[in-house]
């Protein structure tokens, strides 16, 4: 990899990647991804059907479904952890619908996010969303209530926003999930 001049795409050294996976890590990336929910990862035959309709591939992201799966299979751990593509996935699931090998590429995306979360490789907005979910019960939350007033609705919606007991219930749930173990957000 050192050989690459600036602007020249580096050769991917598969031997190096394989050795790293063996020596430096307890589990291969692929094994982790399978554990994190992409059970059929290994069935992928790289046909590319998922990429042909993927909004990420179509808008020029680097590690869309097909390539992400391949990179996981060869153990490109560091490069993947540095890339935010999985957090851009719209979860449209068209890939899942057409995958001939039942790989559920979306689950691979999601599993990649779950792996990145363990490494704190997640966007600020995501942390913000999690914090908001914990504090208000809504990932998207706004303090301003002009809109509700304008259309003739009570300012307080019938959600955790107006129901302290319900919010406490949700907090109890969240405190008993992996979110609490990860310590991504303050959870009093």
């Amino acid at each position: 990899m050192e050989l690459a001049e600036e602007g020249v795409p580096p050769v991917i050294n598969l031997t190096e990647l394989a050795e790293k996976e063996k020596e430096e890590f307890e589990e291969k990336v692929s094994e982790l991804i399978i554990e994190f929910g992409a059970e059929n990862l290994m069935a992928c035959m790289q046909c590319g059907a998922c990429a042909s309709i993927c909004p990420l591939a179509r808008t020029g992201f680097e590690w869309y479904n097909k390539k992400l799966i391949k990179a996981i299979l060869v153990g490109m751990r560091e490069e993947l952890l540095d890339d935010m593509t999985p957090w851009a996935c719209v979860a449209c699931n068209r890939c899942t619908e057409i995958c001939p090998r039942n790989v559920t590429p979306f689950e691979v995306m999601l599993a990649m996010r779950r792996l990145m979360v363990e490494d704190f490789a997640l966007p600020t907005l995501t942390i913000e969303g999690l914090r908001s979910l914990y504090e208000h019960g809504h990932a998207v939350y706004m303090t301003g209530r002009e809109a509700r007033k304008k259309v003739g609705l009570p300012e307080k919606p019938p959600t955790t926003d107006s129901d302290e007991k319900a919010l406490q219930e949700l907090k109890t749930i969240l405190k008993n999930t992996k979110l609490a173990e990860l310590g991504l957000i303050p959870m009093e």
Binding site: R114, T126, G129
Partner: peptide, 25 residues
């Protein structure tokens, strides 16, 4: 009204953490 309902939860939150947390919410 389903009083006390919360976020579904959306993709960028619990589903990005794990299945059990997602399903619990």
């Amino acid at each position: 009204d389903l009083a006390g309902q919360s976020c579904c939860p959306t993709w960028g939150t619990m589903p990005s953490i794990d299945d059990v947390g997602w399903c619990a919410v």
